[in-house]
Design a protein around this nucleic acid. Structure first.
Length: 463
RNA sequence: GGCGGCGUGGCCGAGUGGUUAGGCAGGGGCCUGCAAAGCCCCGUACUCCGGUUCGAAUCCGGACGCCGCCUCCA
């Protein structure tokens, strides 16, 4: 079974699924008030890779990722644009899914919306009040963090040291600056729901407790998100569950951030902040490869240079697919390794990749192994060992499929002009008219093709 | 102030007590009409100072530098 770093234990620990053969994952999704950025993209990719890999190895994964569609920022944006909150959330949720689709990230099994769970949240808050771990103030209901003895577990700090570091005070009546809002009373014009505490809306930290426990049940396996959610969001989620006597997530997994490098983000770098913009100007698979080539807990630098690097590496993978005419494997569907017919060397490769993956999702090691195998497959083919070369190449593609990266062999469709140039060049070459052949090649290059001479003659592809 | 992370060859980026990470870029060679693709060879890195050890990039201590969290955030 895979071993993953658990933020609660501050150590790598084996994942011990509640139900054998099944893994339940709850992921904190986006608040839909703006376009997704590169960080969201990495986030989505990291979890897509984990989910796909677990599925690939034969586990049955139930993957839930929520949409936060009620929040202060949504209200603020709706106000600023003089539209309803639903207009904002509809727009940006659509943008979210569009970006994930473009990244080749599989949709969650369920994507619950916070607004559909308000009643359940109210019930939960009432129970917390009944248990005397929450209290009402003029502007809402607050959770009393001192009621949870190990508050600060995820942050790795004591309640006292967290308190001493608190910087922002929003409500001086709170018993502790760390106490957080469970319910916010509605101000004039704000969207609201009825509750025993008066009309208002839930605080952010409650929705994930209700939805994760509601959909996945007590003791679900993995709760994940970005490192920035560890505290206070996840800490606060956990506090509520603990206060209720519920068994919450057994494994907490957090990933690192996207850095925009020392060049700092600026317009001159080409708007490299929005995921939508990145996807418009590069192959989404290159971003996945970039993400795979660093460890999920490390920061990654996304810049034109690192993207270019990834694109070139990706080109080698596609070249392998072309050489062996590999069929596409990964896509919207989740591949299962059990259905892959491994050759002997393919199975050996898979075992090494799997060992890397099980070691806290060591994708960089897995990718390194796959690149070595790629070189070996090409070398075997050069030596004429077509059979072993092919089986190894197929295994490389299958393993990448397990990581959600599709190798593309497909040629772009030729327009008439290009097709004509290709025919002329082949003619010139068979007549050993190198000058003409080179001229036609130059023309094809000018049209944006990369020109190669294969056994069947001129082959072109898009660069 | 508290807590945590990081500093690796031109660049990106793993690793973790002794054996080649890997990729990109660069140099040389093979192949090719010339290329492209592919293959082979090449750089001998680990912030600094001490210490532990037969042996440290890897463990311990210290210094310097960088970053993050403690407030909304993937």
């Amino acid at each position: 079974m895979i071993r993953l770093y658990d933020s609660a234990r501050a150590a790598v620990a084996p994942l011990e699924p509640r139900d054998a053969g099944r893994v339940s994952i709850y992921l904190c999704g986006p608040t839909v008030y703006d376009l997704p950025h590169l960080g969201h993209g990495r986030h989505a990719l990291v979890w897509d890779v984990l989910r796909r890999w677990l599925t690939f190895t034969g586990l049955q994964v139930r993957f839930v990722s929520n949409i936060t569609d009620i929040d202060d920022k949504i209200i603020a944006r709706a106000d600023a644009e003089h539209v309803g909150e639903e207009a904002i959330t509809a727009t940006y949720e659509a943008a979210w899914w569009a970006a994930l689709d473009a990244l080749g990230v599989a949709r969650p099994d369920e994507a619950p919306h916070a607004t559909a769970y308000v009643e359940a949240m109210v019930d939960l808050i009432e129970e917390l009040v009944d248990r005397d771990v929450a209290y009402e103030l003029d502007d809402g209901v607050y959770f009393d963090v001192s009621s949870v003895t190990d508050y600060g577990l995820l942050a790795g700090q004591s309640l006292e040291s967290l308190r001493s570091g608190a910087r922002v005070e929003t409500n001086l009546l709170k018993r502790s600056p760390l106490d957080f809002a469970l319910w916010k009373n509605a101000k004039f014009g704000e969207p609201s729901w009825a509750s025993p505490f008066g009309p208002g809306r839930p605080g952010w930290h409650t929705e994930c407790v209700v939805m994760s426990l509601g959909l996945l049940g007590d003791g679900f396996d993995i709760h994940g998100g970005g490192l920035d959610l560890k505290f206070p969001h996840h800490e606060n989620e956990r506090a509520q569950a603990v206060a209720l006597g519920r068994h919450f997530a057994s494994h907490w997994v957090h990933h690192g951030w996207v850095m925009v490098g020392e060049e700092k983000m600026s317009k001159s770098l080409g708007n490299f902040t929005s995921l939508t913009d990145l996807l418009a100007q590069t192959d989404a698979r290159a971003y996945r490869l970039l993400v795979l080539r660093s460890h999920y807990r490390s920061p990654i630098e996304v810049s034109p240079a690192t993207m270019k690097d990834a694109e070139r590496a990706l080109a080698r993978l596609d070249a392998l697919a072309r050489r062996f005419e590999l069929a596409p494997l990964a896509g919207a569907t989740l591949e299962v390794a059990a259905s892959v017919e491994w050759s002997e060397e393919g199975r050996a490769l898979y075992d090494v990749v799997a060992a890397a993956m099980e070691n806290d999702l060591d994708t960089p090691a897995a990718v390194a192994v796959l690149f070595e195998a790629l070189t070996r497959a090409n070398a075997l083919a050069d030596e004429g060992d077509e059979h072993r070369a092919r089986s190894l190449a197929e295994a490389v593609a299958a393993c990448f499929a397990g990581l959600g990266l599709r190798l593309v062999a497909a040629e772009a469709a030729l327009d008439d002009e290009s097709a004509d140039l290709v025919a002329r060049r082949d003619q010139a070459r068979s007549a050993r008219d190198w000058a003409s052949a080179d001229r036609y090649r130059d023309e094809l290059v000018t049209l944006g093709w990369i020109v190669e001479d294969g056994p069947t003659g001129t082959v072109v592809r898009r660069g």
